[in-house]
């Protein structure tokens, strides 16, 4: 692809100094995202999905040590940028949607003031214009009688409505990149479907790039163009949604897909697949494939550095087993 990617990440590592030693929470991640594309990051709890998102946004806590060969937004390296430049980017060119809306909404200000502020901070517009834009976006995220909502406070809204307000706020400046970290996990399935649909529609309409962090494989399948599967701080497999679901190639991905009940594929009441064992500690020196304590296909070679296999379509996985040994899901 000749067009410059919106986001290019190469060799991202995040270390967390702890009393017991260094926690290697993110261990060399690569991915790229083009305009209008959606990347879903899926994986085990604690695998580093949120930290990766925060690193891109420049929102990691200071005591965490973050490094990368490349962390570029529209070709501009973000590492080493002054805090003021990052603030100028955030909310303007790139925005974040969190799982818990109250992490971004201030309980002391009205919805209208907060939405308008998001625009006034980055654009030279009048207050009236900012309010008009707020009403427009509240309408877009499916909030009826938007005008009357402007004077309400966050606590006067239901969880689903608050989540919509937060989406509206993230989109006030028409960012080119949106990162949503489990934006619907706390919501009911009906509202989850509504909000995802909304995000996908708005993303298409505005041609934004989106990173969606989730642990729900149903969400991934329905929303993703590309998928990155994380395990213990690494991306163990990535590719198009079709490749990942139809030809999962890393044993962890294959295992995950066997774990979920799928109406029509799994029979009610029958045993589901499972991945026994637990995620290893990432404190101290970590070598070889971190999945080997739980992997059916593990061999002694898995304790040494593991190669990455790539297909022409951009499907890649990190395992000693290559294409020929693929096990169909």
């Amino acid at each position: 692809m000749s067009e410059e990617p919106i986001l290019a990440v190469e060799g991202l590592t995040i270390d967390i100094p702890l009393a017991q030693g260094t926690l290697h929470a993110v261990r060399g991640i690569d991915f790229e995202l083009n305009r209008g594309e959606t990347l879903c990051i899926v994986g085990e709890s604690g695998s580093g999905k949120s930290l990766t998102s925060l690193a891109v946004m420049g929102l990691l806590p200071k005591r965490l040590e973050c490094a990368a060969r490349k962390l570029a937004f529209r070709g501009t390296e973000l590492q080493g940028q002054p805090a003021s430049a990052m603030r100028q980017l955030r909310g303007n060119r790139m925005a974040m949607i969190f799982q818990e809306p109250m992490t971004s909404l201030n309980p002391a200000y009205t919805i209208g003031d907060q939405l308008a502020e998001a625009l006034l901070l980055h654009r030279r517009v009048s207050k009236a214009e900012a309010r008009a834009r707020a009403v427009e976006l509240l309408g877009k995220v499916g909030i009826t009688a938007a005008e009357s909502r402007l004077s309400q406070y966050p606590h006067q809204l239901s969880g689903g409505l608050r989540q919509r307000v937060m989406i509206a706020m993230a989109l006030m400046c028409e960012p080119e990149l949106v990162i949503a970290d489990e934006p619907t996990t706390a919501l009911d399935v009906t509202i989850q479907a509504q909000i995802l649909r909304l995000l996908v529609d708005l993303q298409r309409e505005m041609n934004m790039a989106m990173i969606l962090v989730t642990h729900d494989l149903g969400v991934v399948a329905r929303v993703a163009d590309k998928v990155a599967v994380m395990y213990a701080g690494e991306v163990v497999e990535q590719g198009t949604a079709k490749e990942i679901f139809e030809h999962p190639s890393h044993p962890y991905t294959q295992g995950l897909l066997r774990c979920i009940p799928v109406p029509g594929r799994t029979k009610p009441g029958e045993h589901l697949g499972s991945i026994p064992g637990i995620v290893p500690s990432l404190i101290g020196k970590v070598e070889g494939c971190a999945f080997r304590t739980r992997c059916d296909l593990a061999e002694s070679a898995c304790a040494k550095p593991v190669p990455i296999h790539r297909t022409q379509g951009g499907h890649a996985w990190r395992c000693i087993h290559s294409d020929t040994e693929r096990v169909p899901a």
Partner: peptide, 14 residues
């Protein structure tokens, strides 16, 4: 609103 893991389908309208 159930999202089955089918990459050929989109998010449904409830």
């Amino acid at each position: 609103s159930v999202l089955t893991p089918d990459p050929s389908m989109s998010v449904p309208d409830t």
